[in-house]
Design a protein around this nucleic acid. Structure first.
Length: 343
DNA sequence: ATATTCAACCTTCAAGTACG
DNA sequence: CGTACTTGAAGGTTGAATAT
């Protein structure tokens, strides 16, 4: 993972949003904070000491990145809350006398959470400690990812409850799609793969070969089994809708379409469908590009405009305790499969 | 209730330094 | 050599605590 944390806001947010890695990070950093309102809090003086920088440097970063840092938990406390905070600060009392006397009088105080503590480290350019901390952060985040995913991220898309139903639906629609190509287009060795690629290109701008390369899949891995449920849903919709179009065109014409005609038909269809499903296609592209960068270290260059940070819920969804591997999902859905089989 | 005081915060101008 | 980053220093603002 070659993430440039200093220059990539998305990269930084992906660290901050990764709640699963926080306990490990906290342990590794070894800086003890004061527990207040359920979060570990740090003072600017602690950051100065840890990163070995001047307070003004931190101040400047706070000013230039105020949105980002308040999102990661930095705040200036005043009034009643400050009073309470000072109380817990005194109880834990792991600061020296000088800090002690000045802080006790402070009418307002800038307070960092552990996340904003890390966030500062990801923005300090010249501090050697910050540099070390960044590489520590990346090591741990990768380590947590590997542990949680069992070392492989190829099928990380499947570790989510919505995947299985989406995959089952897709299986059914895929069959309709294949059948329609079979029945309504004149025989051609390439008709299946060409139209499948067209579906992919419409939805996420890559054909299956490009996609394979980006995800470093071997030739016998199926592309579909690596798609996120949101992408699969759209693939299903496309396949289902285009199958109907093909049937209609076949009935109008009274005979099988040539492959060229089928391509033209698809182009028309795709243009309209993309417009109609604009929001969900955009959402799928966002999720695919962003998650693949964060989880699979794979960059979809053609979807670069769709890169966003991966929300905290996604880390939980794909790496958390609730994330399920496929075997377990299959186990839980045994009865569903039995019913399907009996049909 | 009003004035004073204090530390932190904020802004600005300026100069030093590391780096390609 | 220009750019980006860091540090220096001074002056002003703010909000809360304390004194009057």
């Amino acid at each position: 993972m070659q993430l440039d944390l200093i220059n990539s806001k998305i990269g930084r947010k992906n660290i901050i949003n990764n709640n699963l890695a926080m306990p490990d990070l906290y342990k590794a950093v070894g800086m003890v904070g004061v527990l207040f309102e359920n979060k570990y809090r740090f003072l600017k003086s602690q950051l100065e000491r840890y990163y070995e920088v001047d307070g003004r440097t931190i101040e400047r970063i706070l000013v230039n990145n105020s949105d980002e840092l308040s999102n990661s938990g930095y705040e200036v406390m005043t009034g009643e809350r400050l009073k309470l905070f000072k109380k817990s600060l005194l109880d834990s009392s792991n600061l020296n006398d000088l800090e002690h006397s000045s802080i006790i009088k402070a009418p307002s105080l800038g307070v960092f959470t552990f996340k904003s503590f890390l966030n500062i480290g990801m923005l300090l350019v010249d501090s050697e400690r910050a540099r070390q901390t960044r590489s520590l952060i990346l090591d741990i985040v990768i380590d947590v990812l590997n542990k949680r995913s069992g070392g492989k991220t190829k099928f990380i898309n499947q570790r989510e409850e919505k995947y299985l139903p989406a995959a089952l639906d897709e299986f059914i629609y895929r069959k309709k799609f294949i059948d329609a190509i079979d029945l309504y287009i004149v025989d051609n060795n390439f008709k299946y793969s060409q139209l499948t690629d067209k579906v992919y290109k419409s939805i996420f701008k890559e054909n299956s070969n490009e996609y394979r390369k980006i995800l470093r899949l071997s030739s016998n891995d199926s592309v579909r089994s690596t798609l996120y449920s949101e992408v699969l849903r759209i693939v299903s919709d496309f396949e289902n809708a285009f199958a109907k179009k093909l049937k209609l065109a076949f009935e109008n014409k009274g005979e099988k379409l040539s492959l060229t005609e089928a391509h033209e038909l698809f182009n028309e269809f795709s243009e309209k469908a993309l417009l109609l499903m604009e929001a969900s296609v955009k959402d799928a592209r966002n999720k695919m590009a962003s998650r693949d960068l964060a989880f699979r270290d794979a960059l979809h260059e053609k979807l670069a405009n769709y890169l966003k940070d991966v929300p905290a819920e996604d880390f939980e969804k794909f790496l958390g305790e609730q994330s399920l591997n496929l075997e377990r999902q299959l186990e839980l859905n045994k009865d569903v499969f039995k019913r399907l089989k009996d049909r």
